[in-house]
Design a protein around this nucleic acid. Sequence first.
DNA 1: GTTTTCATCGTACAGCGGTACTATAAAACC
DNA 2: GGTTTTATAGTACCGCTGTACGATGAAAAC
Lengths: 217, 217
Amino acid sequence: MPKRVDHAQRRAHITDALVRVAAAQGLHAVTMRAVAGEAGMSLNLVQYYFETKAQLMHAVLERLEQQSHERWAHRLDRLPRPVTARAFIDTFLAEALPTDTASRAFHLVWTSYAVLAMTDPELAVQPFVAGPDRLEAQLAEVLEQAQRDGAMDTERDAPREAAHLLSLSHGLGTSVLVGQRTAPAALNILHDHLDRLFTDPSRDRLGLEAATKRSRS
Amino acid sequence: MPKRVDHAQRRAHITDALVRVAAAQGLHAVTMRAVAGEAGMSLNLVQYYFETKAQLMHAVLERLEQQSHERWAHRLDRLPRPVTARAFIDTFLAEALPTDTASRAFHLVWTSYAVLAMTDPELAVQPFVAGPDRLEAQLAEVLEQAQRDGAMDTERDAPREAAHLLSLSHGLGTSVLVGQRTAPAALNILHDHLDRLFTDPSRDRLGLEAATKRSRS
DNA sequence: GTTTTCATCGTACAGCGGTACTATAAAACC
DNA sequence: GGTTTTATAGTACCGCTGTACGATGAAAAC
């Protein structure tokens, strides 16, 4: 054979092709042949790297999840120090919104998978329950820290506010995807809400320890 | 032939069957044969009442929209008078959450359609943009009335709060559908937010005129 | 009473999608 | 250097799906 090839890279190439197809034409248009075409290889190669379509679909889901983690960690790394809770959460939620075309593709495909998972017990619902659960816990932790610092009203229930924030950003994300709202308009609503949440921004000085520890897991 | 048959009723019977199939197994499992089976009739009859599958799909979308309107109007009618803005919005948002199994089916299928519409320009995006836009305007109107009555802080931007509320309830709805949260937990978050929105409930006395006029259109 | 219309049925057909099978060059191994 | 992997290609097969085409009996129409 020509040369020994990096399987992981080939697999990534294929899953990326799938995401492109799904983002452009919807998950229903994702066929082995379409993916192969988009990836510029023969149908059989796709089969070679993923024995079955179900395996391919699962792999894509995992890759999306991992990419999301990476993007979010990357955004966090580029934040100016010291990192405030407000900035942390801003980053958090901005990532949850389809702001650019790449992000739009990601969220569109992710949402398609979520809808699939609502009826298909085969497709692990875990990413759609455990994932958000973990995000929510992480966010709640940051909010509690902000409360201890006096940046946020202690009368608020941090876990509930975390759930509120995530649900809100997800709902806004959908409205952007569907074309009802622009991304800046969605961000505007989010920021307005955050302005109300952080009552005393001058006392907002989040230590990054707890948050980053979690984001690596 | 046996007897002349009510076409509208037959068509409704079929679209309902489709919704049942889609709710149970997902939109991808919706096939002409599956719908015919669920409806208890032959494949050809489905074709007889809907020439093509695309027509059937469109008809279902219209029916879902209309049913949603009806349910929401019905809920509003059963509200104890005088209707407060708070009660009005409660009703509004409770309808937007998958609380019972019927509502769950509705929201699941509706969301599936929304995801379809994100890539399929054929499937009218109108229900997913114009519909929410109208709801948002309606809600904003009620909020403005509440502001005039002194039940809600005038510093808030009513249209923005309306968008916030709808996005939040939609995001919560999705989290319920996906099994991350229970419906009561979602309602809890909504009510908490409303408690904060309505600063002086004693002055909340919504006249129903504007709202009901709009809900009939 | 004949003819037409209408609801219903079974079946057939063509296309596509996932999967399996076989082949083949070229690199790797020993 | 012969043999064994390995990446790649082509193609075939079977099932499913949307759609089309006749057939049939029974009520309406006249």
